[in-house]
Amino acid sequence: MSTLTSTAKIIAVGGGKGGIGKSIVSVNLAVGMALAGHNVVLVDTDFGASNLHALLGINNPKCGFQDFFALGEVSPEKLLLDTGIDNLKFVSGAGDNPGSANISQDCINIVIDFIKNLQADVIVLDMGPGTNFNVIDFFNMSSQGIVLSTPEMTSVMKTFSFIRASLFRSINQQFAGNPELQKMVDHSNPMQADMETYTVSLLKEKLAEIAPDKVADVDLAVKNFTPNLIINRARNRRDIHVGDNLIRLVRKYLNVQVKYLGYIIESDRVRDSVDEMVPFLIKDPQSKPSENIQRIIGSLTQTDLHLVKQDGNIFVSKQVRLGSGWNV
């Protein structure tokens, strides 16, 4: 694992379930932050089904992570693609390689090193679905992880599972060098996993019996694990309230404090922007989903961001909140 040379804030957008809008939210978050003046790099880490370039209107990315894996050494500058948006670069994961979803852990580490060495203010990671390590490792490397969920019950369940898997993955890394303890929190292999430690409380109880000194490490890992939550495609207040219930559930079983960043309402404008391959924050910054995104960006960056489009030009207003610590 390479040392972190970048001071960039890494924002990983993930979620257990596919099709919940991770890529769209990632793109618009990156665009909003770029428009707010941050140097942003948007990275597509959904190696199996990368389509982030399509949302940006880039037909054929000249270079991507597939070239990185195949050629071995590709200059990082070559991977950074222009998006046509100021302050926004893009690293594509596109490549019509059937086995690209099952890249090795070494490749994952290479990518992680690459990301950590990117010189940018903000790095936005668009993650793939699922809870496998290829996904979770990218999520856990972020300084601000965003879990995305839709109001449907299935999505909420998968989001909970994603959070738990990410937490246990981070605890697992805390127990590095102690396979017995790692087995307690490694649920990736059901044959070897301890299925009784499926909550943090149960884990701590068991750890207290086996290795009481490690309980503090668990507490530290839990404390450092602070994901953020966005409810996408909200249609009513009840949908918005689903996020609160999820946060309550996570706190109950995982002792993790999830921050509710906000919600994005369901809108045809989002769908239209996808069809037109233009981020809806640019296409119509004054639409309701754009306002939601701006509010989420404000929560992330401790700023009050406001975009206005007039005569085809986008005007940005950003007010930094005092004491936020974000680019103050």
């Binding site: 909420v156 369940m157 909970f160 689903v242 219930n245 309550r248 559930l249 109950k252």
Partner: peptide, 14 residues
């Protein structure tokens, strides 16, 4: 209610 919702979630998660 929220309680019912969480219970329902629990029943499906665990």
């Amino acid at each position: 209610s929220d309680t019912e919702y969480i219970d329902l979630l629990e029943s499906f998660i665990f």
